[in-house]
């Protein structure tokens, strides 16, 4: 076996996994704080990226566009809390899950209604080409952009960690995630907190949208990356930020290795199901995912 090629597959898999993690993070945030499995996260990614790119194409400065998009996502987050979650409070999880699928349709339609259904290109200034130095010296192709995405993801996770660990709101978020009632009892206003969570998830969606948009173009198919994040979630556990990252790395690396080294023997295309089967195998050992919180069940 050619070790350089193996390293290349492994590293590109890990970096692809980071991209999945970016999407998975949004799911985790919302699930943690409100117990909602938000299927609309993919649509939010699409919505954010499309809004951003349309603003830039209309001549807006990059950073202003980021801020405006962020503001839009906050408004969307608050609106979702107000119009969808609040009336459905105390409903079973499956109902909320369904509601977020409905939300997916609304967001998809709204985004295309506002900005049209054309795909857009998005350049962040980091070309998606191999790092020359590595290619020359070690004959290993690692994309600059992937490394950049990895750094961004790292920064995002670090930022979220600091936010969660040290700030008053962050602490409140974790408190709400742990125990709604007790959080209410100490005077944490759930609704505001939920609105904040959705807004933060909107921010994460924007980052993910920028990354994925720069990679594949900003188009409707961005909504499908939610499907890529699902095995990451079950592997890592729905409630764990760390799980989203580790899960992403494992899924990314193993699916690439499987496709490259196993795929040719079975006709290829195994990427479509391999991550799920892998996650399933993990679940059989740990039913709540790698880092998920163990649920205590008593009769």
């Amino acid at each position: 076996m050619n070790w350089q090629f193996f390293v290349e597959v492994l590293v590109s898999g890990l970096l692809a996994g980071i991209m999945y993690s970016l999407v998975a993070l949004g799911f985790v945030l919302i699930y943690k704080a409100s117990g909602v499995f938000n299927f609309a996260q993919g649509a939010m990614v699409f919505f954010a990226a499309l809004t951003f790119v349309s603003l830039v194409e209309r001549g807006m400065n990059f950073w202003i566009a980021v801020v405006v998009t962020l503001a839009v996502m906050v408004v969307v987050g608050i609106a979702i809390e107000r119009l969808v979650l609040r009336p459905l409070v105390n409903q079973p999880q499956i109902t909320l899950f369904m509601a977020t699928i409905g939300l997916t349709f609304v967001l998809e339609g709204l985004a295309q209604l506002l900005w049209g259904s054309q795909p857009h290109g998005l350049e962040l200034g980091i070309p998606d080409v191999p790092i020359q130095w590595l290619a020359d010296n070690a004959n290993i192709n690692i994309s600059q952009f992937d490394v950049f995405a990895g750094l961004i993801a790292g920064a995002l996770v670090a930022g979220l960690a600091v936010f969660f660990q040290t700030t008053r709101i962050g602490r409140a978020l974790r408190a709400v995630a742990d125990d709604h009632q007790a959080a209410l009892a100490v005077g944490i206003p759930l609704r505001q907190i939920w609105a904040i969570v959705w807004a933060v998830a909107g921010f994460v969606a924007l980052v993910a949208g920028l990354m994925w948009g720069a990679r594949n173009g900003v188009q409707f198919a961005l909504t499908f990356i939610a499907l890529k994040a699902l095995p990451v979630l079950i592997l890592g556990g729905f409630e764990s930020v760390a799980g989203a990252i580790v899960g992403g790395l494992i899924i990314g690396a193993s699916e690439k290795l499987a496709e490259v080294y196993l795929g040719p023997y079975v006709g290829g295309g195994i990427e479509s199901w391999f991550p799920y089967v892998l996650a399933l195998a993990f679940l059989l050992i740990r039913p709540e995912g790698l880092f998920g919180e163990r649920r205590i069940e008593r009769v």
Binding site: L88, M98, A99, F105, V106, E108, G109, L110, L113, G116
Partner: peptide, 24 residues
Amino acid sequence: SGLMSNLELIVFGALIIFFLIVEP
């Protein structure tokens, strides 16, 4: 045409949410 189709999509999604809210 795009507008109509997108509106349909929005209404479809909104009606699903609406029904879930009215009668979970």
